[in-house]
Each structure stands twice: as structure tokens, then as C-alpha cells.
Design a protein around this nucleic acid. Structure first.
Length: 575
RNA sequence: CGGGGUGUGGCGCAGUUUGGUAGCGCACCUGGUUUGGGACCAGGGGGUCGCAGGUUCGAAUCCUGUCGCCCCGACCA
């Protein structure tokens, strides 16, 4: 017989178990604690079930997001998870998106997809009803399951294939209106992160990727374990994803030299070349070879030897997807010794990075096995029509805005916002009547936050060596009662009495298992409730209980009649 | 999709080299002693060893195939 209220939970009945040992396959702290604490259970690669503690915390995050979306006039809706292929064919994404879009057929053989984002569904919903300018602007959002067949899920809830996401879509009659609303969403996002207890979050400029559109920002939780690389200026507020980051590259002034051919036996990479000639890598010219997806033509990118090619930038310059070339068969290049000087390769596209502009006395390949050329000056010896910016920014480069020093850091993407423009409204024939009775195409924005990933980041940002230290806004339970000597009637009675009383006001978990003190404390640490009440034989005999905050910064003995007030005080003092 | 690793009870692992019918720690159940940081004693339950085929009198172990999972890379709102 279940006789539980909505806020109370007996630990002896809680579904899920907690483990002492670190799971062998987990590396990120959030993943480790979520497994050890009985928060999540993996069902398949990148697919997880959430157990009660995680489900409760996720619900609280969702509620915070919901409140902030409603506060900027969002209207909550619900799109289907399964969508017909035709809808995605309308926008063109059925073809343009890769295999992360899960496609399948229903019993009638009709093509279906699992929703990975819902622009199509949003336009489908809105296009027939938003037929007059009087309805604009408006924003619709949902909190819904998404599926993306990621090539490689990892890190517990950090990178998964199935996940819950809040996605929002706004519709406007002018670019100015979109920009103004975009800013409101931006501000709402920062409020959301603050409310769920995340501190190290910054917004950066980002690539628009498959979404299309021009302006986009990503919200990054700064963490060494993050998968994204970001660049920011120490002096001004320039912040960007590495994918689109730009910089002034540092250049040294050097003397011009004569062209010379040197024998470099089996020296096929920049590192060995610099070592062999005893020069800095920045005194060499590197050739990196890609191939275009559209016509499969090889592309040689020349850049200064100390730099790396930024593939996202290269993709934009070429206007097509690019992949590193691995199959050298039939390509008219002398691999390992490719150089810009005297390069006579057929059917190969050549791109020069701006890092080479004006450089003098560089070493490059001689297009001949085991030889390099020294003393190459770009202006004097090479005919370059145009330089492109296709190199990755390095730490220490100068900021293009203020000349300040750029720093490179890692982060986890916990939200993004896009100014989409008319990509979807146009391709999917969405129109409205303007004041002059003319048909117009609305301008869109879209905005996403991954709930599970956010939950994981809250742990990344709030934990000690024993487990999560949940901020009270998202804690599964606010109060955790430990009965250290449960066999003592007074302890058992008082524990249950406090449990019943406090759960009228707060969410309370009672450890009624009669376990050893160490077991109880360890589990309480893993469950991370902000306030812990400890009942021991001796204290209870003195009419007292101990109240401790999860971060262990507050510890006090209080008389039993004062417990409610003391709990309230501690809750006021913790984050 | 490439490279590497791994699959034995809920979790962590041994056993595989050299085939002989499955074991350890934790967890779980019963009884008792315990109780301020993962206790102790006694008893007990649970695994057709990822799956399929083959070799053999006999396969966790050898052979072939296949699948899952993990890591690195490619990829990625």
C-alpha cells in the first residue's frame, strides 16, 4: 500500500541503487555521480533512462526554462517526435542533413523521420494560422524529446543521441524586430543558467551549421572537459567559437634570402622539417590537402607551418563540405613535399591563407621527393591572387577588435540561438498579409537548450569528491534525514515525525534503512540534498538534532522544537 | 566510417595461454550482534560465460561468423 505525499520519499523505497565503486566506463564527474548515485541508467549507446532523482531534477530545470520562456511571451506547444519525410523535403533538409537524421518507413512504406529539431514542424503549425501581420511577432516553444543519431555519444548526459530539449521558434515581420527579440532570448538564457545554479557560462559567436542563417550565439559552460574550443579576448568582450574565430596573426620581420633547394631525406612533416633545419615552425609553409564534397577535387591549403586549418572556415570559403584527403591515389601532388613554389599540379585547387601574406624566407616542399625549398618570399616568388582566412586562431594572437591578447579555452555547449532569416519560411511557403495587403515572408529565429546536458553541467559545476551539491533550485530533495540509531525508538519516532512535518513544506527524503552511519552519509552525499538533518542516539537524548548543509559549510546542533526554523535558515543561506 | 579494447550473476573482476561442466569482492535475502564516514558472525538465493554455427566424448576456454559496449579519430544546433 502506497501512502506517500508528493514531497516525501522513504529511501528504503526509492527506485535505484547507489554504488561505492567508480563505474569503469565513466570519465566525467557528472557521468560518474549520475551512475553511482542512481540517477541514470544507460539503455543503449547514447540512450538513457532517468531514475527518480534525475527525473525530479530535470523537471525542475524544465520548469525554470518554462517560466523564462513564458516571461518573454512564449507560447508552449508540442510538436510530434515522428514527422513525415515530406515536411523535411519541403525545407530541403531531408537531403542536406546527414545520417544524424534517423529516417525510417512506416507500415505503408511512407518515409518518416525522428525529429532532431523542429523548424519544419513549427512552420507547419504556424503557416496556416499566422496569415496577417496583426498576429506578429510571436514565439512558440516546446520541451520535447529529440533524436540525433550522433556518430559517437559520450560523457553520460553530456553527449547523447536521445535527449529532451527546449526548442523555441519566433516569427517576425522585420529584421529589426527579430534582432530585438533575439536579445530578449539571449537575456532570458542567462537568467535560466543563473537560476539553475551554473556560474561559468559565457555567450559566444558561433557557426550556423545546418541551421542556416547569419547570426548565431552559443552559450558555453566553461570546462576543461568540454568538447568545444572557444576563443575570447582578455581586453574587450570578443568571444567566439574556434570554428568562426578570427585574429591578427603575429608576424616577425625577417630578411629576404635566395631561393635554394635542400636535401631533406624522409622529412615529411612540419615538426621534423623544423627540427632538421633548426628553425621555428613559423618559418615554414605547410600544405594541407582536402577534397571537395561537390566535385571531389583536391584542395591544397597553404598556410604558415605553425598554424592549423580551420575546416569550418575553409568550408565557407569553398562553399562546399570538405574532408581531409586520405586517398592519395591519382592525385597530382608529391605528398610530404608539397610546396607553393613551382607547383604545377593539374586538377587541384589551391588556397592561400592570410598568414602567408607578405611572409619572407619560408621553407616549403619542392614538389620532389626528399627535397624542400628555402628562402621563399611570398610576394616575390609566388603569384597569389587572393589570401583567405582559413587558419585556426592560436592562443596569444591579437584581437581584431582591440589588439588585446586572445585566450583559448574549452567549453560545453548548453544552449544556442540563431537568427534564421527566411530559410524555412521561404522554402516552406509561409506568408502573411502586410498592412498594404501584400504577401510577405516572415523572418524567423530559433533557440535551443538541452535539458539533460544542462543537468549534467549543474553537477560539473557543483560537486565535491563525494557527490553533487545540488543548488536548491534543482535539487531532487531539499532535505535528507539520516537516522543513525534507528533501532532506538526515540530516534525512529523523531525521524518519522520530522519527516511528516517538514514534508508539508519541503521535499524530504528519510533514510529509514537502518544502515550504518557511513552508508547513510555516503548516500546522502550522492543524492546531494542541500540540507541534511542527522539524528543520533546521544543528540536525540539531549533533545537536539544536527543540521548540516550539503557543502558542509554550515553545521549546527539545534533543539528539536527549532528544527523547522533552522532548516529554513540554512536553506536561505545556501545557493 | 577508420584504429584500439572489451563482453563471465545488479556492479567490479578472476578463470581463457595448457578444454574436464564456473569462482571472488560488493550488492541482495534470513537470523543475530552492531551503528558519527561504506561494520561483523552464521546461513542462503541468483549466471545455459553477448549471440550463432563449428571442432571435440566434453567448450567460458579452440575455430568461423555476427552483435553490443568503451576509448581515440573522423563527424556534430
Amino acid at each position: 500500500m502506497l501512502e506517500r505525499g508528493t514531497k516525501d520519499m522513504l529511501l528504503s523505497k526509492l527506485v535505484g541503487e547507489r554504488f561505492k565503486e567508480k563505474p569503469v566506463d565513466a570519465f566525467m564527474v557528472s557521468h560518474i555521480f549520475m551512475l553511482r548515485g542512481g540517477y541514470i541508467r544507460q539503455v543503449s549507446n547514447g540512450i538513457f533512462s532517468l531514475l527518480p532523482p534525475a527525473a525530479k531534477a530535470a523537471r525542475k530545470i524544465e520548469q525554470i526554462i518554462r517560466e523564462e520562456m513564458d516571461a518573454i511571451e512564449g507560447q508552449e506547444v508540442l510538436f510530434p517526435v515522428v514527422l513525415p519525410a515530406e515536411l523535411w523535403q519541403e525545407s530541403g533538409r531531408y537531403e542536406s542533413v546527414g545520417s544524424e537524421l534517423l529516417r525510417f518507413r512506416d507500415r505503408g512504406g511512407r518515409g518518416m523521420v525522428l525529429g532532431m529539431t523542429h523548424e519544419e514542424a513549427a512552420v507547419h503549425m504556424a503557416r496556416n494560422v499566422a496569415n496577417t501581420y496583426l498576429k506578429y511577432p510571436f514565439m512558440i516553444y516546446q520541451i520535447q524529446t529529440k533524436f540525433r543519431d550522433e556518430p559517437r555519444a559520450r560523457g553520460g548526459l553530456i553527449r547523447v543521441r536521445e535527449f529532451t530539449m527546449k526548442d523555441a521558434y519566433s516569427f517576425h515581420t522585420s529584421q529589426e524586430d527579430l534582432e530585438a527579440y533575439y536579445q530578449r532570448v539571449y537575456d532570458a538564457y542567462l537568467r535560466i543558467y543563473r537560476r539553475v545554479g551554473l556560474n561559468n557560462v559565457i555567450a559566444i559567436q558561433s557557426d550556423t551549421g545546418m541551421m542556416g542563417g547569419r547570426v548565431a550565439h552559443e552559450f558555453m559552460y566553461l570546462s576543461d572537459g568540454g568538447e568545444d574550443t572557444l576563443v575570447y579576448c582578455e581586453k574587450c568582450d570578443y568571444k567566439s567559437n574556434m570554428e568562426v574565430a578570427v585574429s591578427e596573426i603575429k608576424k616577425q620581420s625577417v630578411q629576404e634570402q635566395e631561393i635554394k633547394e635542400v636535401h631533406t631525406p624522409d622529412i615529411k612533416d612540419i615538426e621534423k622539417l623544423a627540427e632538421f633545419l633548426n628553425i621555428d615552425e613559423s618559418r615554414t609553409m605547410k600544405a594541407t590537402v582536402f577534397f571537395r564534397k561537390d566535385n571531389e577535387m583536391p584542395v591544397v591549403v597553404f598556410l604558415r607551418g605553425d598554424l592549423q586549418v580551420n575546416e569550418v572556415k575553409l568550408r565557407k570559403v569553398l562553399g562546399t563540405e570538405v574532408f581531409p584527403l586520405n586517398d592519395y591515389e591519382g592525385v597530382d601532388l608529391c605528398f610530404g613535399f608539397i610546396g607553393a613554389y613551382n607547383l604545377n599540379a593539374r586538377n587541384v585547387q589551391v588556397i592561400f591563407d592570410k598568414s602567408l601574406e607578405g611572409e619572407k624566407n619560408l621553407v616549403c616542399g619542392a614538389n620532389k621527393v626528399d627535397y624542400h625549398i628555402t628562402g621563399v618570399s611570398v610576394d616575390r616568388d609566388l603569384k597569389v591572387d587572393k589570401f583567405f582566412d582559413v587558419a585556426k586562431v592560436s592562443e596569444g594572437d591579437a584581437c581584431v577588435h582591440c589588439g588585446g591578447r586572445l585566450k583559448v579555452s574549452r567549453g560545453i555547449e548548453i544552449g544556442n540561438i540563431f537568427q534564421l532569416g527566411t530559410k524555412y519560411s521561404e522554402s516552406m511557403n509561409m506568408h502573411y498579409m502586410d498592412e498594404d495587403g501584400k504577401l510577405q515572408t516572415p523572418i524567423m529565429g530559433c533557440y535551443g537548450i538541452g535539458v539533460g546536458r544542462l543537468l549534467a553541467c549543474v553537477i560539473e559545476d557543483n560537486h565535491d569528491e563525494y557527490g553533487p551539491i545540488w543548488p536548491k533550485a534543482v535539487a531532487p530533495w531539499l532535505i535528507h534525514i539520516c537516522m543513525l540509531n534507528q533501532s532506538q525508538e526515540e530516534v525512529n519516532d523523531l525521524g518519522h515525525r520530522l519527516y511528516n512535518e517538514l514534508s508539508k513544506e519541503w521535499e524530504v527524503l528519510l533514510d529509514d534503512r537502518g544502515a550504518a552511519a557511513g552508508v547513510q552519509f555516503a548516500d546522502a552525499d550522492l543524492l546531494g540534498a542541500p540540507v541534511r538533518i542527522i539524528l543520533s542516539k546521544r543528540n536525540v537524548a539531549n533533545g537536539q538534532v544536527e543540521i548540516v548543509s550539503r557543502d558542509k559549510k554550515i553545521k549546527k546542533l539545534v533543539p528539536v522544537p527549532d528544527v523547522r526554523q533552522a532548516v529554513s535558515d540554512v536553506l536561505d543561506r545556501v545557493k
